[in-house]
Design a protein around this nucleic acid. Structure first.
Length: 484
RNA sequence: CGGGGAGUGGCGCAGCCUGGCUAGCGCGCCUGCCUUGGGAGCAGGAGGUCGGCGGUUCAAAUCCGCUCUCCCCGACCA
């Protein structure tokens, strides 16, 4: 057993049992913990700090595009949910209900929101009277409850956190433009901040949001070859405005229903960070969203408290004033080696080791988490070198994830080849599809793969071959995958 | 919700089939010494109503019934 193997002996290897590796990391890196209630987890401080960084970066973008934040109630009257037929049908199997308040049985039961279109639609009807009130661009950060049968930390929990945008527009074109703008915003966010490359496009009708006219999504590829939906942007058309009577008087004095969109991203993205970037030593957080970007470990030898510690602390101070989220672990009771492994597990992008030898040489040892490569840097140039390295790590993780994604998009022209890819290699399969639900169903039943996205017109060639399932005329190319 | 596996100090497990002494082991934790450049060592110590409820029995971690939770594989979903 070499050194590298010894240090990771406590975690399940990723290649050995991916699912087990995942839940072990979640718990050992203290991102989340189970509670006595099924499907309900505690997001622990280390996990919540990641969520706060995601929130900050995403909120900035949402606001930069003209949206404002508000907060709507947790509860939604049953009658509201029932107003949009498809909506209630889609969500009713997974809604939690409040039927008693204190000791009183409620006259009308209240849904714990599975999403907020209904309550927001009701309020919008009250607020919107004129074209001058449009566009209405509101976002909320909230918790959501969906009574799922199968749960997994971050990926699918009974209660989860998200942001949901709900907008109203004068025209169908504006609604569609907003839907696509957000889709692009999500894609840029995932790639820039999370270092997770995504495929974007529309969903098939069977996969679209209950009550939408069209759902667009971004999909990422986890390192076990399964796809994960990272965010959705829905063009709601006039479905909800008609159900909730959201009307405005337009510029030519005609009464019209507004055109709406809704879109969301959730705490699931944390699960994606784990599964896209994690390795056998633990997490690898992209620097931009890492709670701690740099951990300084003073090498505790001899009179290190007098000789090493002050230098290490000064280094942390210097990095902090340079805008780096730096921290120091000066605990006496843990050995340096233990700390190295610990911060690798927790995904800290960069480790700085400072010991007596380094001080003598006026340098520090920098170890990047993504490649584990070491370099020595003069103490005086830490504040200039560290930001460069952090950017390089961010870019490195992205490059690695993109290479993996690209290597795992495979074309299939016939059904046997299609099945072989899903059976032996997983990843995305790009294949022509006739647009028929029968073929979609058959593929799902026989291969467990679903259409993740259909490229938006113009993004892909327009003359697909025959449908990979039925051999009929191909209408479009679609990306299929087994998904979480 | 269907099929399979599991629940015993913080973590990982043994014990259960065939009921019986103070429920054991490794890691972790506490104290002290000694160490510290990849998860150190020695000595002493703390911590468990065996997931919960009920039943059988002189006696239950162990047998029986119900129930909760977790994991895996399907059907449903961000």
């Amino acid at each position: 057993m070499n050194e590298n193997e010894r240090q990771v002996r406590q975690i399940t290897q990723k290649s050995d049992d991916f699912a087990k590796w995942y839940v072990e990391i979640v718990q050992k890196a203290e991102l989340a913990d189970y509670t006595p209630m099924k499907g309900m987890m505690v997001i622990r401080p280390h996990g919540y700090a990641v969520w706060e960084n995601i929130q900050r970066a995403l909120d900035l973008r949402i606001k930069a595009t003209g949206h404002v934040n508000a907060y709507f109630p947790l509860f939604i009257p049953e009658s509201f949910l029932k107003k949009e037929a498809e909506h209630v049908k889609g969500f009713s199997p997974e809604v939690a209900w409040v039927t008693i308040g204190g000791k009183e049985e409620l006259e009308e039961k209240l849904a714990v929101r599975p999403t907020s279109e209904a309550i927001i639609g009701h309020m919008y009807a009250k607020w919107i009277k004129s074209w001058r009130d449009l566009p209405l661009l509101i976002n909320q950060w909230a918790n959501i409850v969906r009574w799922e049968k199968v749960t997994r930390p971050f990926l699918r929990t009974t209660e989860f956190l998200w942001q949901e945008g709900h907008t109203c527009h004068e025209t169908a074109e504006e609604g569609e433009a907003e839907t696509l703008k957000i889709l692009g915003l999500y894609k840029e966010f995932c790639e820039t901040e999370l270092a997770i490359p995504v495929l974007s496009g529309r969903k098939s009708l069977s996969e679209k949001f209950a009550g939408a006219s069209m759902t667009y999504a971004i999909e990422a590829l986890m390192s076990d070859g399964k796809a994960l939906q990272m965010g959705t942007s829905h063009n709601l058309g006039q479905h909800f405005s008609k159900a909730f009577d959201i009307k405005f008087e337009d510029r030519s004095q005609t009464l019209q229903y507004v055109w709406q969109t809704s879109w969301g991203m959730t705490t699931r993205t944390i699960g994606a960070l784990i599964m896209v970037h994690g390795d056998d030593s633990g997490l690898r957080f992209p620097p931009r969203i890492a709670p701690v970007q740099v951990m300084v470990v003073p090498i505790s030898i001899g009179n290190w408290r007098e000789s090493v510690l002050p230098v290490a602390q000064a280094a942390v101070e210097g990095l902090r004033s340079a805008g780096v989220r730096a921290s120091i672990d000066a605990r006496e009771e843990a050995t340096p080696g233990w700390k190295f492994s610990e911060y690798e597990m927790r995904g800290v992008p960069l480790r700085i080791e400072i010991g007596p030898r380094d001080i003598k040489a006026g340098q520090a040892v920098l170890v990047r988490r993504d490649t584990k490569a070491k370099e020595t840097v003069p103490l005086a140039s830490l504040t200039s070198r560290v930001p460069v390295l952090l950017e390089s790590i961010q870019a490195g993780l992205m490059a690695q994830a993109r290479a993996f994604l690209e290597a795992n998009i495979r074309d299939a022209s016939d059904y046997q080849g299609f099945k072989d890819i899903l059976e032996n290699q997983r990843g995305f399969v790009r294949a022509p599809w006739c647009g028929g639900e029968a073929c979609e169903d058959r593929i799902k039943t026989e291969t467990m793969a679903t259409i993740r996205v259909i490229p938006i017109d113009g993004d892909e060639e327009k003359t697909p071959g025959p449908c990979v399932a039925c051999g009929g005329k191909g209408q479009t190319v679609a990306y299929f995958a087994r998904a979480y």
